[in-house]
Design a protein around this nucleic acid. Sequence first.
DNA 1: AAATACAATCAGTACTGTCTGTTTTTTTAA
DNA 2: TTAAAAAAACAGACAGTACTGATTGTATTT
Lengths: 261, 261
Amino acid sequence: MDKPVQSTTRKARDKNGWQAQKSAIMRDTILDAALDCFVSIGYANTTTARIAERAGVSRGAMLHHFPSKTELMQAAVEYLHDQLVALYNSHIGQLSAELPVDERNRRGLEGYWNYLRSDLYVAYHELCVAGRTDPELQVILEHSITRFDQGIIESNHQLFPEWSSRGEVYELAMDITKFLMEGMAVSQIISQREKRVNRMIEYLGDRLEEIFHSADDDGAIFRHSALESSNKKGGAKKSSAFKSNSSQNSSKASPTDKQAK
Amino acid sequence: MDKPVQSTTRKARDKNGWQAQKSAIMRDTILDAALDCFVSIGYANTTTARIAERAGVSRGAMLHHFPSKTELMQAAVEYLHDQLVALYNSHIGQLSAELPVDERNRRGLEGYWNYLRSDLYVAYHELCVAGRTDPELQVILEHSITRFDQGIIESNHQLFPEWSSRGEVYELAMDITKFLMEGMAVSQIISQREKRVNRMIEYLGDRLEEIFHSADDDGAIFRHSALESSNKKGGAKKSSAFKSNSSQNSSKASPTDKQAK
DNA sequence: AAATACAATCAGTACTGTCTGTTTTTTTAA
DNA sequence: TTAAAAAAACAGACAGTACTGATTGTATTT
């Protein structure tokens, strides 16, 4: 913002010069503005001019650092990725694995929920939705997504080491948590949001706890017919339900349509 | 598509003339094209020209029926609403309440999942996301959303009459189902989608069943600390967790931003 | 003949990417 | 150390495209 004084204190170019520093600052300023635009006006309405305006730089200057919109978006996704990782870690990454399981569960859910409620996640979601019908953006995103999910898995392995061995149960618990929480975060619940959300999170916490304990003594206090491991009550309850209309999804997104470009 | 032959079979204007019929067909054709665009190229990339092209009509003709894009979108939302209701009913609306509870659960989940996987729901989701940062669209949608949710609630009351009395349990079960399923539908699960989805749906089915039974004899075989009704294991486990950062969401969507329009 | 349905063109706006020009920093050479 | 040259950063203007809404004109129905 306020241009750093031309301090000759570090008179010699410190490793990578003064210009390089300013350049880096400029880049971050622009990328911050881009993410800000995604959140406040949506990806679709985010134009290069608007980003420049929000960043407080001229369009020409911006075009010097990011010659095309595509390159800007690539950088923005990369930038967002780093920010998301940092935010995730700040919320649940550094939870000690020494805490009692139940406590870890609670805090993990709480942290994850706060993570999902962040502006950064809103921006991420905007990109995901736009990516469904924008092949170029999709390519840019794919890499980041898989990398991030991988990171989460690793983080969880670290946070819940006792789960790592139980393949199926672990996967299921993670999936349920992820999709339920994401569903809540993405949907705009209108009435009594706070109350209903808290209720669901508490319920989810109980279920996780339950899965944990039932997995401990593998005695299956509760039926988990969704898992092959405890298929005593008719494991033949074909888990192939819902496969009937699986082909219906074929025409869903044909992003390779004439996208007019 | 193929213009109906000028059949004089029904020579007299049947109630509302020949032109009116053609006009209605034209409207539906255009609205179908609009929804199709939302699905295949996304709401953001949907222009009036593209809709007209896809509908196979001239832009001028379309502008005769829908003078402005806004009016077209209003009609499209209305049209989509009707279609969604019809689809919902065709999938789970006419499930007999005489079926055993478990069977109703299974089929209900299966139907709901297929409903969520439909193109119509994709279109609806596109609109919802776009509406977050488009005040005008948001207004158009709001009415439809609340009306639809109300319809679902009623439909469920009819399908699961035995639930209707149990306020809290009923709400929680509905919410969990809704948000988990929507979360699955919206997220693009990359690896082993089919398997993981089926597993989650089965798990969810088991939990619903469980909630049902535990609600029957209200004996709380399982802990539902998320509900006040069975707060024996320390009901003081303050359900006000996650309220800490509730204000963080304030700057989330300020759609009243300068939207440039 | 009057109204409605349909078609095509036009003006105004907005966005992207290129181009040219100006300032500031860094490098080179004296 | 300083002066000139080169490079990088920055700013604004411009062409090309695409979209929306208006206008005008033609065909069909009432």
